[in-house]
Simulated scan of single mutants.
Amino acid sequence: MTSDEILMDCEERMEKATNHFRDELRGLRTGRATPALLDNIRVEYYGSPTPVKQIATISTPDPQQLMIKPFNAEDLKEIEKAIRSSDLGLAPNNDGKVIRLKIPPMSGDQRKKMVTRMSKLAEDARVSCRNIRRDGNKHFDQAEKDKTMTEDDRDSGKEEVQNLLKTYEAKIDDMLEKKTKEIMES
């Protein structure tokens, strides 16, 4: 692998780890209704797990409520079952046409637990990025050992991988800080 290929691979993988963290943050309940809360919920739909947003429209009529209107009224029961079995801790209210989810405000204790959970998710994302750095450094060492790269190229490549890591760790910290602020203020 050339230096550019190694760096591109590292950057793509770090971007994926960062995006995964962003998606996990989106799905966390903050006391405010957002359709992203239902992103990770899968409904049994003709024998295969399907995301709720593919079989229903999700809207927020007010900041404390989600409304789920399935394209097919027969799917109401399956959507309700999927929400009840999820870890959201919300009780769906089914009126025969739509499902309403009341989002209760979070207590101070719940907020602290949520921030702790987010910190763990952020650390997992940072560890993923560090593992990617380690892999990139191994590729540079191997390329130097195989005589396809000079020592100076290897060292400058490792330095660039380290700079990439710092950039992505800063992005993760920034996302964590914003979400923490949002949870503690709402």
Rank of each mutant, 00 (worst) to 15 (best):
L88E: 07
D39M: 03
K102H: 15
N72I: 05
T57V: 10
D95E: 12
R126K: 15
D23H: 15
S156N: 08
S86K: 02
L88S: 08
K171F: 14
E80S: 06
F21N: 07
P104S: 01
M114W: 00
D124K: 02
V161N: 10
S156Q: 13
P104D: 02
H139F: 11
K147R: 08
A36I: 13
E80G: 02
N94K: 06
D9W: 14
D75M: 07
P92K: 04
R13A: 07
D87Y: 03
K138W: 10
I55R: 00
E74N: 10
D124T: 05
D9R: 04
M118C: 07
D153P: 09
E144G: 00
T30I: 10
T50A: 01
K16S: 02
K181P: 01
K166V: 01
M67V: 10
R42V: 00
G89A: 06
T34V: 12
T60C: 10
D174F: 08
T167F: 15
M106N: 05
E169I: 10
E169M: 14
E74D: 13
M8G: 14
K113A: 12
I132Y: 15
E74G: 12
A143R: 00
K166L: 14
L101K: 00
D23P: 14
P104Q: 00
V127K: 09
G108R: 05
D135R: 03
M114D: 06
C129M: 13
R100E: 06
P51W: 04
L38I: 05
Q65I: 05
D141Y: 05
F140A: 05
A122R: 09
I55P: 06
M67F: 08
P63S: 05
I132G: 11
R117P: 00
R154D: 14
G31L: 12
D4F: 03
E185V: 04
P105S: 06
H139S: 13
E160R: 13
T34P: 01
R111V: 04
N131M: 12
A143I: 04
A73Y: 07
R13P: 05
M118R: 06
D146V: 02
M67P: 11
E177Q: 15
L165V: 05
L28H: 13
V115C: 01
K171A: 12
G136D: 08
L90D: 00
P104L: 09
S86N: 05
H20N: 08
Y45S: 01
D135N: 11
S107L: 01
P49H: 00
R22W: 15
G47R: 00
S85N: 14
N94A: 10
D153M: 13
D95S: 03
R154P: 10
V98W: 14
E123R: 02
D95V: 01
V98P: 03
T50H: 02
V127Q: 11
E11A: 11
F21I: 11
P61E: 09
D109W: 07
K171W: 08
E44V: 09
R29S: 11
S3G: 10
S128H: 14
L38E: 05
D152P: 09
V43Q: 07
N72T: 04
K16C: 03
S156L: 14
R100Q: 04
R154L: 09
S48N: 08
P105V: 02
D141I: 06
Y46M: 03
M184W: 04
E44P: 12
D146F: 06
C10W: 04
T116Y: 11
A82F: 07
L38P: 11
A122S: 01
